[in-house]
Design a protein around this nucleic acid. Structure first.
Length: 478
RNA sequence: CUGGGUGUAGCGCAGCCGGUAGCGUGCUUGUCUGGGGGGCAAGAGGCCGCGGGUUCAAGUCCCGCCACUCAGACCA
């Protein structure tokens, strides 16, 4: 079909998925490279997607009782060093500030790679009694990690995220918080981004530096690879002990509180691209699309066309939709291709023919379906289609994940599956790190998570044959 | 960090045996067009990634560096 040729600048995803991804990021004007290695400029269209993610997630955080705060971007070396596992995990990839102006600093400062240490320092200062607990804090900020290889949104030296940091009286409460926020992430991914996720716990090897337990949501990209899309960590009282955070409990005893942290980042934008996008460009779920509908007038110089288009624009906007109108003198065909590339969910065409018949044409981005609708009932028609697009995107993504998830009970079988294509493979695992590492060498997969469901495929570890209780989902990850 | 690829106009690229910097697209102006990336006409646009070297002469050959990119390794 002619359709394949429309967006000739975009490499087809079957041909080269990695290149397809970077093409979209550039052509949809989400990102531009900067002169700083590994850092990117997030352009208005890309940032607008982030703002919609932020707005909706922030509401969910507020609904669950969290407050926003802001911590400094610098961490003194001595502070970073306080928790042993944590510093070992992050030290290799932090950026250091050594000078202020021309003066050498007494103590060098790292640019935050994450803010656990700063929150701990602060909590130590403000918590004395059980009456001060819990504290449910979140911050929106950027962090810096000196990554070896970078890709827009998926891994960059500096990236935007939110990090929640909470502190509680009891272990139970902190664990409940960790799980609660993981569910918030999973719900958000499903309900807003139309991305189904696999919820589970990370193996010790994949755990966050300093955590007692790390929970994750894993999403499957269109090419079958996994993207860790959000994490929630339970810290126990490890950080509290290292940072000497204590409170007086209800029995007048000094105790260490329990902590959590959780975060999602602009990586979610990468997930949206790789889950929903196609060879014509980006495909955005209506709920987070900067513009849900674009109005393209046809034959703009014919009398009444622009007036009618403006009238529809006002009407749809008044109904609460995010609407874009393009009255520029580009040709209609150019505009069609442009907004497809940018993933606008719905296009409205209005020309002399339509006006005569009191109609307009609506075209869906997700499946190209074209319908002619009466202008009388436009708002309802548009809303119904947008809802259907949102639901269809989720369904399609669910299908992709289901069709690319396989069970394996012996190593040969697992290897065969993994060699054939990128996918999730579910197996039993004994819990030994050695087996986990061997599977990486032999099969080429890493453990994505241990799902919360207590399913059993067999009684023995896929790798060593020993008794196994845990079900692990393996895959290739971004 | 290891290995491969690529750096020439905003973007995509060509430039052979070293000899005056090219094409497509985009941009500007005008005009006719307009329901899937339009036609015609006239224009503007270059530190050929950076630094050395060889040469009468270097996008072109040699050395070094940097950036981007892919595959790994590393990593939340």
């Amino acid at each position: 079909m002619a359709k394949e040729k429309l967006v000739k600048e975009i490499t087809s995803m079957d041909e080269d998925f990695a290149r397809w991804y970077t093409d979209i990021v550039k052509k949809a004007e989400l990102v531009e490279y900067s002169s700083v290695k590994g850092c990117m400029v997030i352009r208005p269209y890309g940032y607008a997607i982030w703002e919609n993610i932020q707005k909706n997630l922030d509401n969910m955080f507020k609904e669950t009782g969290h407050e926003n705060v802001y911590m400094p971007m610098f961490i003194p070396e001595s502070l970073l060093n306080k928790e042993k596992d944590h510093v070992e995990g992050f030290a290799p990839e932090v950026a250091w500030v050594t000078h202020g102006g021309s003066e050498k600093l007494n103590e060098r400062l790292c640019v935050r790679p994450t803010s656990e240490t700063l929150f701990c320092e602060h909590y130590k200062n403000i918590i004395q009694s059980y009456r001060d607990l819990p504290k449910l804090y979140n911050q929106w900020c950027s962090v810096v990690r000196w990554e070896k290889t970078t890709r827009p949104f998926l891994r960059s030296s500096e990236f935007l995220w939110q990090e929640g940091h909470t502190i509680h009286e009891t272990e139970e409460e902190a664990i409940a918080e960790t799980e609660r926020m993981l569910n918030v992430y999973a719900d958000f991914a499903r309900d807003y981004l139309a991305i189904p996720v696999l919820k589970g716990r990370k193996t010790e090897k994949e755990q966050f530096a300093g955590a007692k337990a790390t929970y994750t949501i894993e999403a499957m990209m269109h090419d079958g690879k996994a993207l860790q899309s959000g994490t929630s960590h339970y810290f126990g009282d490890g950080f509290a002990k290292a940072f000497e955070i204590q409170y007086t409990d209800r029995n007048n005893q000094l105790k260490n509180p329990y902590q959590t942290s959780w975060g999602v980042s602009t990586r979610l934008i990468g997930a949206i691209i790789m889950v929903h996008g196609d060879d014509n460009g980006l495909v955005l779920p209506p709920k987070i699309a900067p513009s849900q509908l674009v109005i393209v007038p046809i034959a703009t110089k014919k009398e009444g066309v622009l007036e009618k288009a403006s009238e529809l624009y006002d009407r749809l906007k008044a109904s609460g939709l995010r609407v874009l109108k393009d009255f520029t003198d580009q040709t209609p065909g150019w505009k069609f291709a442009e907004y497809e590339m940018k993933g606008v969910p719905l296009r409205l065409e209005i020309g002399p023919r339509d006006i005569e018949n009191n109609n307009c044409v609506l075209v869906r981005r997700d499946n190209g379906e074209k319908v002619i609708v009466s202008l009388d009932n436009l708002e309802n028609e548009v809303n119904a289609i947008l809802e259907d697009i949102q639901a269809s995107l989720l369904k399609k993504a669910e299908k992709n994940m289901a069709e690319n998830t396989f069970d394996a009970t012996d190593l040969e079988e697992m290897k065969k599956i993994a060699d054939e294509k990128n996918c999730f493979i579910r197996t039993m695992w004994c819990g030994d790190r050695e087996c986990e590492e061997k599977l990486k060498d032999v099969v080429g997969v890493t453990s994505r998570c241990m799902p919360f469901t207590d399913e059993k495929l067999s009684d023995t570890c896929i790798c060593c044959g020993k008794k196994a209780e845990k079900l692990v989902v393996w895959g290739k990850a971004y």
